[in-house]
């Protein structure tokens, strides 16, 4: 799998010169990247590196201060509704209504995400089944365990079969078995066997072996700048472990990395 630059089809995500400033503080600075359809990209970085800010700009939750974001060809600023329709988003804490049942909630999300009425019941059932929620579909979300809530959050993100899935720390707080299940599901969504067009996934995490388990490509952000954007295979080719790369980069504070220049398209 290449870094996605030479792909001819519309990139699932195309980001140019993305910046986010809060007053004098620059949370994200000059990000450039593309994600091809079906690609699973891990967004790495220490806490407060700008991962969540970047994801919020991709999903249209906050507008960028500068730069451009295209989701499946829709600009988040000039065609916000088109861009948002093409994204499924699982924020850091799943956005759930605790008083609703799982099915009612997923069905509500399907209706605000423009799933046509005729297909809605099927789409809801499919999302529930794929996230392993069939047994609890009539239960009230507030009574579910954390692992199940996380799955409901994931069901909500995939119910409209979006081109792009943005997952902010999807496995945080889950037990090892649940983590494995969620990872399996993410991998399945992007796989060619998955019927309705492959979904691109961009997920943030600071669990390094998560990236090694499911991502084809690694982007590392540090102090709001992209310091690495490489296929995983290349990065670990020299027998180097991801953890070493990560530690190496985060230890050199502030200095712009030499990798930066190479990696930017």
């Amino acid at each position: 799998m290449s870094a996605g630059i030479e792909v001819t089809e519309t990139p699932a995500i195309e980001v140019e010169g993305l910046c986010k400033r809060y007053g004098d503080f620059e949370a994200v600075h000059g990000l450039h990247f593309r994600v091809a359809p079906g690609e699973v990209v891990g967004l790495l970085g220490p806490n407060a590196a700008g991962k969540t800010t970047t994801m919020r700009m991709l999903t249209g939750f906050i507008p960028p201060s500068d730069g451009r974001v295209l989701i499946a060809g829709h600009d988040v600023l000039t065609d916000p509704l088109g861009a948002r329709a093409a994204v499924g988003y699982l924020p850091e804490s799943p956005p759930l209504y605790p008083e609703m049942t799982v099915r009612a909630y997923v069905s509500f999300v399907a209706s605000i995400k423009d799933v046509p009425r005729r297909e809605r019941a099927d789409a809801v059932e499919r999302a529930i089944a794929r996230c392993g929620l069939s047994e609890v579909s009539r239960r009230v979300i507030g009574q579910l365990s954390k692992g199940y809530r996380q799955r409901v959050g994931l069901a909500q993100a995939i119910v409209h079969e979006p081109e792009v899935l943005v997952l902010d720390e999807p496995t945080v707080g889950l037990d090892p078995i649940q983590i494995r299940e969620i990872r399996g599901l993410i991998a399945e969504l992007a796989s060619p066997e998955h019927g309705r067009g492959r979904q691109s996934v961009i997920l943030s995490t600071h669990i390094l072996n998560e990236v090694e388990a499911i991502c084809q490509r690694v982007m590392m952000i540090h102090h709001g700048r992209m310091v690495i954007d490489q296929p995983l295979a290349e990065l670990t080719a020299g027998g180097q472990r991801l953890e070493e790369v990560f530690a190496h980069i985060t230890s050199r504070d502030d200095a712009p990395s030499p990798v930066d220049a190479e990696a930017s398209p």
Partner: peptide, 14 residues
């Protein structure tokens, strides 16, 4: 309080 504003504001809604 629920964080569901993030769901609404990232959905194709005005």
């Amino acid at each position: 309080a629920n964080g569901t504003d993030e769901l609404l504001l990232t959905s194709p809604l005005t």
